[in-house]
Structure formats: C-alpha cells, structure tokens
Amino acid sequence: MCSAVNNVKPHIRIIPKVIYNTSSTYFITYRHIHKIKEKIEMEDIFLALGLLIAVTISLSLYRAVLGPGVFNQVAAVNVIGTKVIVLLVAVGYIFDRPMFVDISLLYAILNFIATLVMSKYLERGEICSA
C-alpha cells in the first residue's frame, strides 16, 4: 500500500477514501484529482452538497450566536441540527461508509428530543414537574 502511494506523481490529493477490505482491516487509499477532470462522478455531487450545507450551517451560526433573544437561538440550533442530518448522509456517500446513515438516524432522534426539552424548559422554567 505504501508503494502505491509513493509511486504517484505529485498530483493534488484531496479525499482520503476508506475502503472496507475483506480481511476486516481498514486500508486508506487516495483519490487523485487531475488537472483536467475527465468526467464528473456522483461523489463530486455529494461533495458539493456537503460544502453547500457547511456554508448554510455557518450562515445560521450568526442567528445561533447573536440572535436577539433566546428563542431565536434555539430555533437556529434546531436548524443546524436538521442540516447536520443531511450532512452526515452526504459524508457517508463521500467516504463509501453506509454506517453514517445509522448515525444520522440517531442524530435526528437526539436533535428532536433536545429541541423539545429546550422549548419545554423555556416555557415552564423546569423540565419535569413533580
């Protein structure tokens, strides 16, 4: 594997692509992007989607930090959480790892419960009334 990496001419290395090998160990190879790209693959579209979601998340960080009042902040955090779900799915397709879909399912449930708990706390001043 090392020789395979060393033989490569100095192209631009971008994404470490993780391959799940049959001997149940992880090998890391590198995908090379040539100067003139011959064709667009589906992974590039998922990469563009991930970058776009990252930009939208950093835009909504403005409301999450500076938003007037705590409710704007909670709403912005909810928006960031739901965007992270889709970002996890896209990352799973970029790295060829199907487990990211499970992680995004868990993250969806956690984000929903966090939103409900925050809004109930702000509404009543306590989470669980005895």
């Binding site: 909670v74 909810n78 739901t82 199907p98 399912l105 929903f112 409900l116 925050m118 809004s119």
Partner: peptide, 30 residues
C-alpha cells in the same frame, strides 16, 4: 440503506413540524 433512508425521511416529516410548533408555543406562552 434505502429502507433506513425511508425511515429517516418519515421521521423528519413527523418531527420537524412538531419541533417548530413546540418552540413557537413556548415563545407565545412566555
């Protein structure tokens, strides 16, 4: 994976309006 993605889609359809409604009700009642 398609089945899991379908469950994810179904959950987003159910949970997102409920979360919006919860924050909005809290803001209105305060």
């Amino acid at each position: 994976i398609t089945v899991k993605l379908f469950f994810l889609m179904f959950f987003i359809f159910l949970a997102n309006p409920v979360g919006t409604h919860a924050i909005m009700k809290a803001a209105y009642l305060t």
